[in-house]
Design a protein around this nucleic acid. Structure first.
Lengths: 332, 332
DNA sequence: CTGAAAGCGCTTACAG
DNA sequence: CTGAAAGCGCTTACAG
């Protein structure tokens, strides 16, 4: 059943050597135009295509890029993946994607697999557990193996010596805060379900830098978050909400609606959402757009650059992409 | 930078042959316990791991499974992918994922790439364009190449000769209809943004089988859909809505809320949602759960079965998984 | 129990 | 311009 047509079979049929066939198909200068044509014609006729595994072994390249995302069911990562796909599509590489499911152990296993000669380069967003435990040795180890690696989105505070791509989380929240202020919000609270995540910390810091008497509602447990949120709204003081992540955003909206508060008049909300779905939802939530596809594209471009220019000596790049605020119906 | 430790280097260091090293590491019966230990110890010491590409070339297996999904930003497919990942994780295969972006052309390219010896098996959900044009030759061609392939979710009406996994779309809608009836809905409309998609047709047929005087609102263009929906609601007759897909579902909710209709009292809605987000949303929408992860798992299991038992003679399987209805706050 | 040889399907110096 | 040879890093009959 396997592809029975090979260089050898073509060579035999043409009564020439395997080398000549190979060179002809690769358009080598060494071969006469005539021979090339003969070879190519037969190759087409027989539907020949080179065995990719053999080529890889010879070229000492896997032509694959390993990608690790924490959670594919988070629309943010799905979009990042789409961006990655778009760029790799017009390269010789294709991607093999693993999901760490936010587990350090799983992340190690993936990285281990990749580093056993299965990929030429790696794209990774670290797992939540990795983030919390601040265990980065398994990532740093990759450097010794000489495999280019680019980190995206969740970037450890201390530089690890790799290229990184992320957004200006701190500033994004500052902008969101200022926007709500301009809409006459006087008592803006910050709501987060990712208090320990790097991006969560940065966003909270951005908020704290602006708020004079800050109200931070932060729980990883969504039930706790919801409860505290409800109690806070009950007091009736807060007139602006900044949510730090998609779950917090949805819960804020839920708490506001359940309580029957009117958007804009009584309270405003800005957060993070799944853009595609938000457009069809009610209400359309005002949100910080991280342009996840762009993150994926940029991350991939940087890896490809490393892959092409061998000189590893280059210093690492820290690319910060800008977010934008899209106004919906939860503020005005 | 490449892994400089190979069978050859181990053999040289131990002053034995490459074959002996290879056999030792593979725990061959032929080798003495003593030698095995010596070899394994050194291998561990040197951090040896076999070059996967060389192994694949020798074994004539890629150990990779190709997956084609129409759109990774659709949470349904993200969850399917998660299911696939879970099963492949405990197999020797890993997956390389391509996105057809609902394009027939792109789908052909992906399939073409796969069939050039890049994967051992294929999992595919056909693109919308493929579905519409009913062009399946590129898929059927895979059979000649002897590469096992399993179709999931969008299954062409005419059998293509492959294993398939899908849900009972028709019956799901019948159940939804009956459920709404039991909640005293008397005028149930059907809303769809996927009128030409296979699953859309089946769902519509399910609806039509129940409705005495059917109201079908179906547009691929979401603006058209929204407008017609609003006009229908304005008339005030409809007291139940069945949405055929996630976009239609969100738009139904939006139209209902915008119009200020009260759920349960004035109108009920049941549709398809992203389960994780729905749980945090307001309102929680009553929905048909397709258990997308299960679809992914089942699809993968069937492919692995084909991959293991060479006898291709087996007749193709048609697996239909059951959906369940999860009651939210948009009906009661 | 160990090793030499052939082979997986290619590419690429190197001869001729 | 063409081809024989070596090699990419493995595995596995087959001899010894």
């Amino acid at each position: 059943m396997k592809n029975v047509v090979s260089l050898k079979s073509l060579a035999k049929e043409l009564n020439i050597s395997v080398s000549t066939v190979s060179k002809s198909l690769n358009d080598s200068e060494e071969i006469s135009a005539q021979t090339k044509i003969r070879v190519k014609n037969l190759a087409k006729l027989r539907g020949y295509s080179p065995n990719p595994i053999a080529v890889r072994l010879q070229k000492q390249e896997t032509m694959q890029i390993g990608v690790i995302v924490p959670n594919i069911e988070n629309p943010f990562f799905a979009s990042v993946l789409k961006g990655i796909d778009e760029i790799t599509n017009s390269s010789k590489y294709n991607i093999i994607t693993f999901f760490s499911n936010e587990s350090l152990q799983k992340e190690k296993e993936c990285l281990d697999y990749f580093s056993r000669g299965n990929v030429d380069g790696i794209l990774i967003c670290i797992a939540e557990e990795t983030n919390k435990k601040k265990t980065f040795d398994h990532i740093i180890d990759i450097k010794q193996k000489g495999i280019p690696l680019v980190l995206f989105d969740r970037i450890p505070m201390q530089p690890l010596g790799f290229d990184v791509v992320h957004v200006n989380d701190y500033d994004s929240i500052v902008s969101a805060y200022e926007y709500l202020e301009s809409k006459n919000c006087n008592n803006i609270a910050f709501v987060s379900s990712i208090p320990t995540l790097i991006v969560g910390r940065l966003r909270e810091d951005g908020y704290l830098s602006k708020a004079e008497s800050p109200t931070v509602i932060a729980f990883e447990d969504l039930d706790d978050l919801q409860l505290t949120l409800q109690n806070t709204l009950k007091k009736g003081k807060v007139d602006g909400l900044i949510a730090a992540d998609i779950n917090a955003t949805l819960l804020c909206n839920r708490a506001i609606q359940t309580r029957g508060l009117k958007y804009s008049e009584e309270i405003s909300l800005i957060g993070y959402v799944n853009a595609a779905q938000n457009d069809l939802s009610y209400p359309k939530i005002s949100y910080i757009d991280q342009h996840p596809q762009e993150i994926g594209k940029q991350t991939t471009r940087m890896l490809l650059e490393r892959l092409e220019s061998k000189p590893e000596g280059k210093e690492t790049k820290d690319v910060v992409l800008n977010t934008t605020i899209t106004i919906g119906e939860t503020s005005a």
